[in-house]
């Protein structure tokens, strides 16, 4: 295809991505380096017939003039990144210097909002991803041995947790595990603890969110592995059987190696998707006990005061996190492409 033809074909999609993905990234990086102007104050004297008082008021004219002259705000450099709401370098240095033990240092790190969000995001990502792969694999193997008329039905119901909006899915579960809901009551009865509430403790909230994450994403792994099982080489299975391999050995030495490329694929996609965990925290109303990087940005952007600079700094840090997670994929794609020539 000629360069010129290619250009016209790619133009609409490239323009859309340039205007609404690439430029916003530039804008986010810029905004994170500036902070809003402070209001300019002036002292005015109010005189009544009896006495004069001095008061400080906002000089609206000067403030507006400054805003028009420098719409981005004051240059802040990296200070927003290093402040207490983000990387909190001073607080960390202090915590390190005055630590009583390593545990104490980690505890104090957990009190800083950004690190709190990061620790949950990373825990969620790296716990949910392996669990959903294992669960998805087991479901795929179990469904594969069903009668073929049942398979379609099982796949239909299995797709549901994945296809509904994460917010809706988490609300549905949230209402059930409410202490007055059916699962909440069931757990109270099971553990014979009538005051048990999953919302009240940090550990239980984290477990709840992780269970939700596995429930939501396991269908994806299941469908991919199930498709992989349909292409299982029958000859190899037969030879393994003739050689006297047990069922477990067949699974271990034939099925799992055959599915391995798919496992990598699912793991990479799910690492990216779980890293952006956000809606469940809103749905489960779990802000008090768990916050993720995405929720952290959302929280800055929402409400009356839109803290754009702070949200931008968190966004840049999140993008850096995504880049680190993504680097193995990029290296792999690069190698594949070069191998193909």
């Amino acid at each position: 295809m000629k360069h010129k033809t290619f250009f016209w074909f790619i133009l609409p999609t490239a323009t859309a991505m340039l205007l609404f993905i690439a430029l916003p990234i530039v804008s986010v990086v810029t905004q994170s380096l500036f902070t809003p102007h402070e209001q300019i104050l002036k002292t005015v004297e109010n005189c009544t017939p009896f006495n004069c008082t001095e008061s400080t008021v906002v000089d609206l004219e000067a403030t507006e003039k400054q805003r028009v002259e420098q719409p981005l705000g004051r240059w802040a450099g990296l200070s927003i990144y290093l402040d207490r709401g983000h990387l909190a370098t001073t607080a960390i240095a202090e915590a390190w210097n005055t630590r009583t033990s390593l545990g104490n240092f980690v505890d104090r790190l957990g009190n800083l909002p950004f690190y709190r969000a990061m620790s949950f995001t990373l825990t969620y990502t790296f716990v949910v991803t392996p669990l959903l792969i294992v669960l998805g694999f087991v479901i795929a193997v179990a469904v594969n041995s069903l009668h073929r008329h049942l398979k379609g039905l099982v796949i239909f119901f299995s797709l549901l947790p994945m296809i509904v909006s994460p917010l809706i899915g988490s609300l549905v579960l949230f209402w059930m595990i409410d202490s007055r809901g059916v699962l909440g009551t069931g757990l109270q009865w099971l553990l014979s603890n009538p005051d048990l509430s999953l919302k009240a403790s940090t550990e239980l909230t984290w477990i709840m969110l992780i269970v939700y994450g596995v429930w939501h994403s396991a269908p994806f792994a299941f469908v991919v592995f199930y498709a992989g099982l349909q292409t299982l080489p029958q000859d190899t299975m037969e030879s393994a059987m003739i050689d006297g391999a047990t069922r477990w050995q067949q699974t271990k030495y034939v099925v799992i190696p055959h599915l391995m490329p798919l496992v990598t694929f699912v793991a990479l996609i799910q690492l990216m998707d779980n890293f952006r965990v956000f809606e469940p925290i809103v749905g489960f109303n779990a802000e008090a006990h768990a916050s993720s990087l995405s929720w952290f940005i959302f929280n800055d952007l929402g409400g009356e005061t839109r803290l754009l600079s702070s949200a931008s700094a968190s966004s840049v840090l999140t993008i850096i996190g995504v880049a680190i997670l993504l680097s193995p994929v990029l290296v792999r794609t690069w190698r594949d492409f070069n191998a193909k020539g």
Partner: peptide, 22 residues
């Protein structure tokens, strides 16, 4: 172009919102 698209695909959409608002 495909690699750039892949990178864009991986970014959480909420990180872009701060760039849109202003």
């Amino acid at each position: 172009l495909l690699i750039i698209a892949l990178i864009f695909r991986a970014m959480p959409p909420i990180t872009l919102v701060a760039g849109y608002l202003l």
